[in-house]
């Protein structure tokens, strides 16, 4: 479904992403983890052709994303608030995305109704524009909008951040549902190792732009990830101690 070859991104001589090869099968659910600056958002931006790769390319369904726009009809994403149109109400936003994805108003109304437990009586039907909603409710709208029109590739950057506990639990259910769908490829990033290991079928760990771990999830994955990140934080500790002594 998605294949990444020799992909790199360099800003002012500093390499922020460098992936030699990464293949994602159709229907797989990938969890992407990594510290700040690991290159998660860079990778997503490259997948959506929002930035240009320095070298290499990404094929999505055999379409080179940096050269053709044909990947757009089957791909959808929610990366940050710049995916929301602030002056629309949530419903209008859903209708807008729906029209772009060939859905009629009734389809969208049905979709909104089916996710009513996710919205939990907030966000929709509030006579508020998106720009006046709280961060968490904005996020809910963005996530649900990315599911409109049964896309084959769904990209969600840190979907769990800013969400309340009940919504996190519901979102896990939604993403698991997508993961079980053999037609939908999901890419989810998160700082919460527990969430990622719970929803993903395969976990990719990025560190300073490189893939450091790439494993199909097993019961030991969470401990493995935790061990890895603990190792990183400890490797910095001695230097801090030395500078304190001076």
């Amino acid at each position: 479904m998605i294949s990444i070859t020799n992909l790199s991104k360099v800003y002012n001589g500093v390499s922020v992403l460098n992936i030699e090869e990464l293949k994602i099968e159709k229907g797989q659910a990938i969890g992407l983890v990594g510290n700040n600056g690991a290159g998660k958002t860079t990778l997503f931006s490259l997948l959506l052709d929002l930035i240009q790769p320095t070298t290499g390319y990404i094929l999505s369904n055999d379409i080179k994303v940096s050269e053709s726009e044909d990947w757009k009809p089957f791909t959808s994403a929610f990366v940050d608030e710049s995916f929301l149109i602030g002056y629309l109400t949530p419903e209008e936003y859903f209708y807008f995305i729906g029209e772009l994805r060939g859905q009629n108003k009734a389809d969208i109304d049905a979709l909104i109704a089916s996710y009513s437990d996710f919205f939990n009586g907030e966000a929709v039907g509030q006579k508020k524009y998106l720009r006046d909603l709280s961060k968490g409710n904005q996020k809910k709208v963005g996530i649900i909008a990315s599911l409109i029109g049964n896309p084959e590739v769904v990209i969600l950057d840190e979907p769990f951040a800013n969400l309340d506990p009940s919504t996190q639990i519901r979102l896990k259910k939604i993403i698991k549902g997508l993961a079980d769908d053999p037609n939908t490829t999901v890419l989810v990033s998160s700082h919460d190792l527990q969430h990622v290991t719970e929803v993903a079928q395969r976990v990719v760990l990025l560190e300073k732009g490189k893939v450091m771990m790439d494993k199909v999830k097993t019961s030991g994955t969470f401990a493995e990830l935790e061990g890895y990140f603990k190792g990183i934080s400890e490797s910095y500790a001695p230097t801090a101690a030395i500078s304190e002594e001076e």
């Binding site: 959506l48 052709d49 929002l50 791909t75 994403a77 940050d80 995916f83 995305i97 772009l100």
Partner: peptide, 14 residues
């Protein structure tokens, strides 16, 4: 501009 990323990644031909 405030939602340009959406416009560029959604199913919108230029």
């Amino acid at each position: 501009s405030s939602y340009y990323k959406l416009m560029m990644s959604q199913n919108i031909p230029y």
